[in-house]
Amino acid sequence: MEKTKVELLFEWMDNTTDIIQKHIEEPYLDSLAFTMELMFLQEVPDDVDDILTHKLEHALKELDMGRYEIGEIRKGVQLAILKGMKDSTQQQHLMTPETVAMLVGYFAEKLSKKEGKLTVFDPAGGTANLLTTVLSRLEQDVEAFAGEVDPTLINLAALNANLQKQNIEFFHQDSLRPFLMDPVDMVVSDLPVGYYPDDIRAGEYELRAEEGHSYAHHLFIEQSLNYVKPGGYLIFVVPDFLFDSDQSDKLHSFLQENAHIVGVVRLPESAFKSDKHIKSILILQKKGNGTEAPKQPLLAQIPSFKNANAMADILGKMNQWFVQYTDSSQKH
């Protein structure tokens, strides 16, 4: 069978990363960042020794970036990052699956006004896979921002955005600290799940725990609401147990006060390793003048992504729901 362009690009990236890794003895993800820099610059940096320079110049001769479309580059990069993350044991080094990111992009497209400029923010940017996938679905002029605390991930994210020609401004910081950024039209994020270690910082949030560590995913929701305009939308990938945990009553009343729940869409169980990893997509609108909750929130269970007929059916129903929702929200 003939290899797809995505497979060919991934193979080139993987082989080149392997050459770099053997030479500089750094982890795969750091060596991959070097590979992505090569792809972007199309030349070997000056500070590389002769032996490696020779090997990399040879590799670059075999790469013709002009034959790859942006989507193919994104998927090739994704495969290489996924491979690196399999070797990395850190929990935060996980990437939003492409199918899930595409769904978030679908919702972003449905909820964004078609005319004018759009500002989008991901407070947990990771390698920018979710954000760049969402941006690829949006047709308007978009200005994007992302926060990420992990230096390896933000380095990969910046290179990933460059290779896809996406204009994203990155903040290398703990995203639960204040941002030097105006409120945006929309937030999209695959929320980090777990406890937030900084109890002093958490104490500034309404959703802090009464005792012990607070949930990072709750604080991220509150922080995101701080940085979205009134009437703006937030699309989160959240753990399935979000509303069943010991601190969920507090979250529920906080959301009732500050946002409208637009929809909860449960992702297919087959997309996750185990039941405890199942996720949903939570769609919120920040309360503002003239905003009101949908008469009937969008509640859906996504079938297996492999079941094309069932997927087409649910997309048809969701499209129908969005037509009614946009009609009624435009009347206000």
Rank of each mutant, 00 (worst) to 15 (best):
K114I: 10
L60I: 04
T99L: 13
A80S: 14
M36C: 08
M39R: 00
V100C: 08
K114E: 15
V104A: 11
A33F: 09
V104D: 08
L41Y: 09
I73W: 04
I70E: 11
F40Q: 08
R67K: 15
K117S: 13
K83Q: 11
E26R: 15
S88G: 05
V44C: 07
T96V: 07
G105F: 00
K75T: 08
Y28E: 01
G116P: 07
L111H: 05
T53R: 14
K117Q: 13
T53H: 09
R67F: 00
E69H: 08
E98Q: 14
T99H: 12
F40P: 02
Y28T: 00
Y28Q: 01
A101Y: 01
R67L: 09
E98D: 15
Y106P: 04
L32S: 01
D87L: 14
Q92A: 11
L79G: 02
L41G: 01
E62V: 00
F40M: 07
E72C: 05
G116W: 05
T96L: 02
L29W: 11
F34I: 10
L82P: 00
G116F: 03
A101N: 05
D49I: 06
D50E: 15
H58R: 14
E62W: 00
E57A: 06
E72M: 03
T99V: 13
Q92E: 14
G84R: 01
V77K: 00
K83D: 04
Q91S: 13
E25M: 11
K117A: 12
M39F: 11
D49Y: 07
H93R: 08
A108K: 05
F34Y: 10
G76T: 03
F107P: 08
K114N: 10
K113H: 12
G105N: 05
T89S: 14
P45N: 08
S88E: 12
D46L: 11
L79C: 04
T53K: 14
Y68Q: 01
A108L: 05
H93W: 06
A80R: 03
L94S: 14
L103S: 06
T96S: 09
M36E: 01
H58N: 13
E43N: 12
P27N: 10
G66L: 00
L94G: 11
K55Y: 12
D47I: 07
L52E: 02
K83M: 01
Q90K: 15
L32R: 07
K114Y: 05
L60Q: 03
D46S: 13
I81E: 01
